[in-house]
Amino acid sequence: MSDNFVAPGQQRYLRACMVCSIVMTQARFREEGCPNCEEFLHLQGSPDQIESCTSQVFEGLITLANPAKSWVAKWQRLDGYVRGVYATKVSGQLPDDVRTTIEEEYRIQYIPRDGSATEAD
């Protein structure tokens, strides 16, 4: 039932999506892709893509039980995403080509989750 639970022993395999910051195990990224960003990241079944678009360096976990109501979600720009565990900070940068693709083809502005966007505000 609890999809998003990760046992402590498995937590070393956790990775965070660099776009939406959702935190899942590498295996799950591979099997299901990113629930929020699959449309343009295409992580499913692609370890390489997972390697480059998700990061195992992240901090500040957030259990998001109710993304619609949550201020935390709003502040973290997670509203509209699925329920799950997210990270406040994801280190690492999306590869330039992926970034260009999502910004031009999907017209989504990429907000880096590594803290570099905060200073801009």
């Binding site: 039932m1 609890s2 999809d3 998003n4 639970f5 500040g60 976990l61 957030i62 259990t63 998001l64 039980a65 109710n66 109501k69 949550s70 935390v72 979600a73 329920r83 799950g84 565990v85 406040t88």
Partner: peptide
């Protein structure tokens, strides 16, 4: 807590919190 939220989802004693971090 994530597990608890998901397990109790849809039951009578749903976890009433919105998020945890």
């Amino acid at each position: 807590l994530m597990r608890r939220v998901e397990e109790r989802m849809g039951t009578s004693n749903e976890v009433p919190i919105i998020s945890v971090f």
